[in-house]
Design a protein around this nucleic acid. Sequence first.
DNA 1: GTCTATATCCTGATAGAC
DNA 2: GTCTATCAGGATATAGAC
Lengths: 193, 193
Amino acid sequence: MPAQSTRELIVEKADALFYESGFEATSFADIAAAVGISRGNFYHHFKTKDDILDAVIARRMERTRAMLGGWQAEGEGPRERILSFIHMLIANQSQIMDFGCPVGTLCSELAKLGHAAQGRATEIFGLFRDWLADQIRELGAVDRAETLAMHLLAWSQGVAVMATAFKDEAFIRNEVAGIGQWLASLPDLSQPT
Amino acid sequence: MPAQSTRELIVEKADALFYESGFEATSFADIAAAVGISRGNFYHHFKTKDDILDAVIARRMERTRAMLGGWQAEGEGPRERILSFIHMLIANQSQIMDFGCPVGTLCSELAKLGHAAQGRATEIFGLFRDWLADQIRELGAVDRAETLAMHLLAWSQGVAVMATAFKDEAFIRNEVAGIGQWLASLPDLSQPT
DNA sequence: GTCTATATCCTGATAGAC
DNA sequence: GTCTATCAGGATATAGAC
């Protein structure tokens, strides 16, 4: 396995800092310090801050694709695979209470900044939406699949926002249980009894 | 009616700018330009940026209280009053698609900044939560009132985040209709048939 | 209360030595 | 590829005249 390149390290640290502090509030100096290189060296790898943002979004797209692919391979059925998605809210709850959802908060910040990369950030949501719609389609709800996928995404985003604001684990557990019940209430038309 | 003081004007313009551009991305110069005063004069009214944020949060608290009070006075019953809350998503949809929910995005940004005012910003959510819980209690769901209020708040926040990301009016309409159905499905225990 | 002028620091970004 | 030195501009914040 090759050693991690400086460029890869920069993108990894920038990804974490953009998540934890926000894009605007993260300076080149912050990233350089996290990587352990000088500010000058920085510009050998990225010309502008927007270039780093592009690389961070590309990285998140890649990793999201990999995660969804993993759930696709491991989950025994669409219902179980959707549960993998929902389980993220529990697995990452301490980070979510501190910094929110990485995708939702980035999209919101870029919207306020009027940043050109907002559309690319939304594409990460698009990956989740399409994957969830695929699962729902497999359950047999072909015509409403995308609508239900957007509803599920919105629900999880709402939980993330409220979890960040109130830092209430019981609330998260309760909502996750609610999503689970909602999922169970979806009729499985692919396996008629 | 007295003319609006410079201080009030500063808070009003800062409120709008914090919403539309974010707290971190808004500079003193931006606010001063919006108000039409010099940067120097600015410090006569507020010593630090955090002082302005406190004033903005206080203003939002006041206005939220006034809005909830208005709904309380005008709505004929708890179900109608909750519909006033839900209707915000439609009435403000273009602003929400551009900048998200003012409360949710502020809480998320302050969380990332590790800002001391985060708790005060969350109190705005607390006003909505308590008011919604009151309405739900009036419907007779006394024991689950706060849980259902948090669920409703989370739902609306999720819709706001996804609306900002995807800018899809049909999605908003669909989710608002879903919330309306959910509300209608709540049994009214206060008026047994 | 409002202004101009200024101080100090930090930002993104560049030039050029090694 | 990494560094130091430096730039121009903008940030918050202050001092002091009017």
